[in-house]
Design a protein around this nucleic acid. Sequence first.
DNA 1: TACGTAACGGTTGAC
DNA 2: AAGTCAACCGTTACG
Length: 298
Amino acid sequence: MDQSYGEVNQLGGVFVNGRPLPNGLRVRIVELAQRGVRPCDISRQLRVSHGCVSKILARYHETGSVLPGAIGGSKPRVTTPGVVRNIRDYKHSDPGIFAWEIRDRLLADGVCDKYNVPSVSSISRILRNKIGTLSQPNHNILGIRAFMDSSDQMEEWASRAAAFPSARAVNVDKTVSSDADVKYSQCSSNLSGFVQPCVYPPPGQYGGVYGGSAAGYVSPGAGWQAQGPGFPHGPHGAGGAAGASAHCGDATHPFTQLKHSQRDGDRKAGGVLNRYQPHAEALLGPTGLHRAAPSPAS
DNA sequence: TACGTAACGGTTGAC
DNA sequence: AAGTCAACCGTTACG
């Protein structure tokens, strides 16, 4: 994390490998596209690779959000102690109950919703590895104590196509960058009316770097990411991000664009983004940058 | 030439 | 505390 940030692409633009373009630049891309500027021209004008322009526009059209997805983090577990306890109760009250019946009951009883209910296979595993052992005094002999082991949760998630509600949404603002405003604080644009370029926090950041030529590049400091805590726990989401503000010119605006998006299909299909956040639309507030008719896939 | 996208190398954050 | 893993990123190259 040194000053070594920043590389220059073929167009002379500066970027940081692995990090999202500043929101301001992302907004700018969408703005230009809405004005009818061709992607190739946007690419040249902003010195952003056409692939990136394509991705951002595709993402925007698909999800209505210009914001990057949440980077890093882990999936929230679904087999919480409470859920396991319920499963155990169901099993005790009806030893012959099937996993799928337990699943149904978890939903029916409101223990879980469709987004965080464990898969049948997960329930089976819980019954086998946890509940089963709990009722068998000799389970220690076998050393089967892996209660809520990590492999479990991963497997659960893998088997679970369902999305996890707001958990993901909340993660968005962590990548909320700020720099943008430095170069792209155009409150006048119609898009800016919806989304204020967010703030990559503090000084020394990377901001101002983007979109310019390499010559204009000022080695950014380490403050580039003032990301909040990870999504599962952090005060993200509408609340968390609402607390943040974005600068637009010398004015500050509440940052509200929290909409998360579906994965762009980079390497893996169906990123967590979409899985975690079926309710993302709810977060696309009036101030969020949205299309006329956002239609999140799925 | 313009564009979509797979591959790649990188960062991030929870576990 | 450090390592692993699976998300995400933007660039590049290819069709």
